[in-house]
Simulated assay, not measured.
Amino acid sequence: MHHDSLDAFRADRTDLGKGPFAVIVCEDRTAIDSTLGHVLNLGFRGVVLVAAPEIETARLGTDTGVPIHVIADRGRRPGVAMDAVNALIDKVPGQWIHYCYNGEYLFYPFCEDRTVGEMTTWVMEERRFAVLTFVIDLYAGDLTRHPDAVSLEHPLFDTSGYYAETRRREPDLVMERQLDFYGGLRWRFEEHVARPKRKIDRVGLFQARPGLRLREDHTLSDEEMNTYACPWHHSLTGAICSFRVAKALRTNPGSRHDIADFRWHKSERFNWSSLQLMELGLMEPGQWF
Rank of each mutant, 00 (worst) to 15 (best):
R213A: 11
G183T: 06
N226L: 00
S151M: 05
E118Q: 13
R202E: 10
L179H: 03
F110W: 03
Y139N: 03
R145D: 13
F110G: 00
T133C: 15
Y162F: 14
L214A: 13
L106H: 08
R186W: 12
R209Y: 08
Y162L: 04
V131Y: 01
H192V: 09
A149Q: 01
D142S: 09
D180E: 09
L179V: 13
D148H: 14
L185H: 08
P155G: 03
D201F: 10
K197H: 12
T166W: 06
E118D: 05
V203G: 00
V92T: 08
L212F: 00
T219L: 15
L220F: 02
F157R: 01
T120K: 00
Y228F: 15
E112W: 09
R188L: 11
L143C: 02
R209H: 11
R167Q: 10
T237Y: 07
V203N: 03
H192C: 09
Q178N: 05
H233R: 14
T121V: 05
R186D: 12
P155A: 08
V150T: 02
V123R: 06
T120N: 05
Q95A: 13
E224I: 08
M119K: 08
C230N: 15
M124F: 09
R167W: 09
L106F: 15
L220Y: 02
S235N: 14
S151H: 08
V92K: 02
R127E: 12
D137R: 08
F181Y: 14
T133M: 07
R169P: 11
L132N: 07
R186E: 10
L214G: 06
I200K: 10
R186G: 11
I136A: 01
T121D: 11
A194D: 13
H218Q: 14
F206D: 02
D148F: 05
A140V: 01
Y101E: 11
L156P: 01
Q207A: 07
V131I: 15
R209A: 15
T159K: 12
L143Y: 01
H192S: 10
E126M: 06
T166M: 10
Y139T: 00
E125N: 13
A229G: 04
E165C: 11
G141P: 07
F157L: 10
Q95M: 05
M175L: 15
H218C: 11
G204Q: 07
P196C: 04
W96D: 08
L143M: 04
M225W: 00
T166P: 04
L152A: 08
E153Y: 12
L106C: 09
F110D: 08
F189I: 10
Y101H: 14
